[in-house]
C-alpha cells in the first residue's frame, strides 16, 4: 500500500514537472456545510487533472464526490482551498469550457426537447445541434415531445446527449449510469466514449465500477472527504493483480 501511495504521489507530481498547466487543479480544498458541526464533506484535497484522460472519481455514497463536483462547477463555494480550471477560478469563464451532467434532471417538464437544444445552442458556443439531433434521432426521441412525456431513463439520455454534444474541455459526469438498466448503461457509456473531444478530459463519478472500469485511464478513490488514491487504472491492475472493482471492494470493505 505504501508503495502505491508513493507512486501515486509521483503520478500527481508528474503533471507539474512536465511543465504544462493542468486542465483542473485542486489545491488543499475543504468544504464544511453550514450547520454540520465540525464535519468536513471535503477535507484538504489536492490533485491535478491533465488533458486527454478519462478519470473515474470513485468512492462510496457520502464520501464527498458530489460536493467536490459541485465546487468544481461553481455550484458550491469552498470553505478553503482553491480550484483552477484551465487557470481560472470557477465562474462564467470556466462554465464555458465545462460540460456538466448532474445527478438530477434539470429541464422544465413543460419544455420541448427541441427547445432544450435551442437553449444549449444559445448559451454554449461549442454546442453542436447537428450532433444532438443525430444522436436523438438514433435514439428515436421525438424532438417535439415535452420532457414530461418522457420516461426518467429517456430524460437522462437526452440530457447526456446534450452534454456530450458540446466540444468542451472538461466533461464532468456525476453518476451518469446510476439507476438505469444494463442496456441503457451500455448506451450511455458508448455515447460518452464516442462523442467526447479527444483533447478534453472526462471526470466520471460513479460507484458502479464494473461497468466503467474498462474505459478509465485513471482512478481517484475518495474516502470520508479525502483523496485516498489517484493513479492510472492500468497500474492498479498490474500491481494489485486485480480489477479496480475488486480493489475498490477491498479498500471500502464494510
Amino acid at each position: 500500500m505504501r508503495k502505491i501511495m508513493e507512486e501515486q504521489f509521483q503520478f500527481n507530481e508528474g503533471f507539474a514537472n512536465e511543465g504544462f498547466a493542468p486542465l483542473l487543479q485542486v489545491d488543499d480544498l475543504c468544504k464544511k456545510y453550514p450547520g454540520s458541526g465540525g464535519y468536513m464533506a471535503v477535507y484538504h484535497m489536492s490533485f491535478a487533472i491533465p488533458r486527454g484522460r478519462i478519470i473515474g472519481l470513485l468512492g462510496p455514497n457520502g464520501c464527498g464526490k458530489s460536493t467536490l463536483i459541485k465546487m468544481i462547477n461553481g455550484l458550491l463555494a469552498p470553505s478553503s482551498g482553491r480550484i483552477l480550471v484551465n487557470g481560472f477560478m470557477p465562474g462564467a469563464e470556466t462554465k464555458r469550457i465545462i460540460s456538466y451532467l448532474p445527478e438530477r434532471t434539470y429541464f422544465d417538464n413543460n419544455m420541448k426537447v427541441s427547445s432544450a437544444i435551442n437553449y444549449f445552442a444559445d448559451f454554449y458556443a461549442d454546442f453542436s445541434a447537428e450532433r444532438a439531433y443525430d444522436m436523438l434521432g438514433r435514439l428515436g426521441v421525438n424532438i417535439n415531445a415535452r420532457f414530461k412525456t418522457l420516461s426518467k431513463g429517456t430524460k437522462e439520455k437526452v440530457q447526456l446527449i446534450l452534454v456530450m454534444s458540446r466540444d468542451a474541455d472538461l466533461y464532468i459526469l456525476d453518476e451518469p449510469i446510476a439507476g438505469v438498466d444494463p442496456a441503457a448503461r451500455d448506451y450511455i457509456l458508448h455515447t460518452i466514449i464516442s462523442n467526447y473531444n479527444r483533447r478534453a478530459s472526462i471526470l466520471l463519478s460513479t460507484h458502479l465500477i464494473t461497468d466503467v472500469e474498462n474505459v478509465l485511464d485513471d482512478v481517484i478513490f475518495m474516502k470520508n472527504g479525502s483523496l485516498m488514491l489517484y493513479m492510472p487504472a492500468e497500474q492498479i491492475r498490474s500491481q494489485m493483480g486485480k480489477t479496480i472493482d475488486a480493489y475498490f471492494r477491498e479498500v471500502y470493505v464494510c
Partner: peptide, 17 residues
C-alpha cells in the same frame, strides 16, 4: 424553480455571471 431547485443545476452552470 430556476434558481434553487433541480433546474438550478442548469441555470447556475450557464456561462454567465
Amino acid at each position: 424553480k430556476t434558481c434553487y431547485t433541480d433546474q438550478g443545476y442548469l441555470t447556475h452552470t450557464l456561462p454567465v455571471s
